[in-house]
Design a protein around this nucleic acid. Sequence first.
DNA 1: TGTTAGCACTCAATATAGGAGAGTGCTAAC
DNA 2: GTTAGCACTCTCCTATATTGAGTGCTAACA
Lengths: 348, 348
Amino acid sequence: MTLDARKKNVLMAIVQDYIATAEPVGSRTIARKYKLGVSSATIRNEMADLEEMGYIEQPHTSAGRVPSDQGYRYYVDHLMKREEFNSKEAKLVLNGYLTKKREVGHVLRNAGQLLSQITNYTGVVMTSGLGGGRFKHIQLVHMGGRQSMVIMVTDAGAVHHQIIDIPESIQAVDLETISSVLNHKLQGKTIENIRLTLIQEIYFELAKQKHILDMAMDVIQEGLSLETGEKIYLGSIFNILNQPEFHNIEKVKVLLSLLENEHELANIMTDVFQEEGVTVRIGEEMEDGRLKDYSLVMGTYHMEGKPVGRIGLLGPTRMDYSRAFAVVEYMTDNISLVIERLMRWRGK
Amino acid sequence: MTLDARKKNVLMAIVQDYIATAEPVGSRTIARKYKLGVSSATIRNEMADLEEMGYIEQPHTSAGRVPSDQGYRYYVDHLMKREEFNSKEAKLVLNGYLTKKREVGHVLRNAGQLLSQITNYTGVVMTSGLGGGRFKHIQLVHMGGRQSMVIMVTDAGAVHHQIIDIPESIQAVDLETISSVLNHKLQGKTIENIRLTLIQEIYFELAKQKHILDMAMDVIQEGLSLETGEKIYLGSIFNILNQPEFHNIEKVKVLLSLLENEHELANIMTDVFQEEGVTVRIGEEMEDGRLKDYSLVMGTYHMEGKPVGRIGLLGPTRMDYSRAFAVVEYMTDNISLVIERLMRWRGK
DNA sequence: TGTTAGCACTCAATATAGGAGAGTGCTAAC
DNA sequence: GTTAGCACTCTCCTATATTGAGTGCTAACA
């Protein structure tokens, strides 16, 4: 299914013009604006061919042509020029978030916002790899009365805490003992590393506090497990409403119903987690039918070479892929950098 | 500016009908549906009076009447029957959130969602009082390399943490020392309670670690200060789009531009923090011009008798005030209860 | 054989006009 | 003070042209 040079040019012209104007583009427009050296009649013939091959479609008989999902796909894979995005401001902003509050969550949340602002699409930032770290520290703090707070830190810098009930009889000293035993035994362990025998050992040593131990272990387990810490930060939804396709409310509703459900969104984004570099899912390539008019450009950011999360740009299928790719690439690189800097305690 | 009984009835009929139908209501409709014992002509006269007094207005000459902000205000203050909201499911849901993950933030986030779901308006939950607690515990955890994590817990159960740089020379023991000195000296202190002399004492005792101390004190200061922990949880925005007034996108945009800015939203809600019970701001009563077509029904939730946050329902001015009041009242009561239960360690 | 000019045809979008209907304000009678 | 009646206003809906962009097809041309 290969296209000759002129068909490529025509398709490229259609995609680019439609991206720029959001209007179906006709043969005359192409002949005038994009000097292909042929008349509109010839272009009409080419367009008829392209339509038959499924790259473009007609909203109705007397309208121009609009790229189909397949057309966009061909454009992205074969025709699009990869541009570079480089913005000093964006870099400053990102680093600003870093220095103001040295927390990953804060950086990611604002990265999502930034994505939305600079593109007018909706930025999505997902973190999935911050769970699954190694045990670093646990602390049971007596809150008075019959409650205590369990605080656990992983070496990835994630903090998990939970309030638990404790028997009246427990003293601060007992909590201290539990903390120190756990700290000693579990130091540096990952979730897979914690052997059953080790747990038995701990339970044996702290036999009297089985009840508290149960709850503390729950917190540890959850804190170290891979799924924990999966979190989605949405950029501004406002910006995408500036796109002309959002003139009717139903589309907005559909989009919101999806965006407000973190879980579904995460599913869609993890769908292609394994792929490297910037990738895109166009319209019906995504399983969720609600997204048939949208495209999602995604990239993966890393920490010490390992993928720890993804960012995405959600826009109409008629989005500026060239720019979107550049921005996503730029942002993944910079988020990786910033996180790396934030967490550079190991090694060095 | 008092109204006679019949005018009250007419106004009430107009407000209720408009709330129910979202259509301007005419004299005939009132005469037919609300048996006031007079003809439509008489009602027309009354309506003319009400319009002159500013309680109702006409979208255009040959349309029915619509309540003005002032009309809604009169309705809410003098005419509205206060109903009760009582939903076993809502209570179950709320308690469910509590038992699954015993954290205030989790409860509040879901309370916001719940508000949106049961009313089809947008629920807003604000917490402002969870900062400003008493110092409970601090822990400096060595993360390896040149970084350490400061974790502070307040007696209100809030956990604050931040990663700080430390000199290479510092040992885990040193961090332990700092932690224990701070824990000892600051136990139970509020932000106002920490005297300068006390700080000097601490700095004297830990003279060698001034640098780390500075950063730890920052965390403490921020954790205990009143503004910290001010946070907004938004319910679903999706639901409010079901209201007929949202047929045009511009309104949605305006709303989103406001909702996406936590800071502005917080300002609007704290505007009336001092008032007790359920209150409402109608349309132009709010300073922000963008809200001129909206009303915000608000209530305060408490912890140990002290106000610690607010919830709000944002809907069109044409909202069902009676129900909104009932729901807000119900939710504040139940959130207070749930939080109380979550934090019932002191006293008892 | 590929390209182009020309032309009839299609169809959305826009404008125009004509009711229909809901509602009002006013007047006069009760 | 209340009401019936009526002329008037204005939106909304529908039907009908009109316009214009764009196509597909055909026939002529290089």
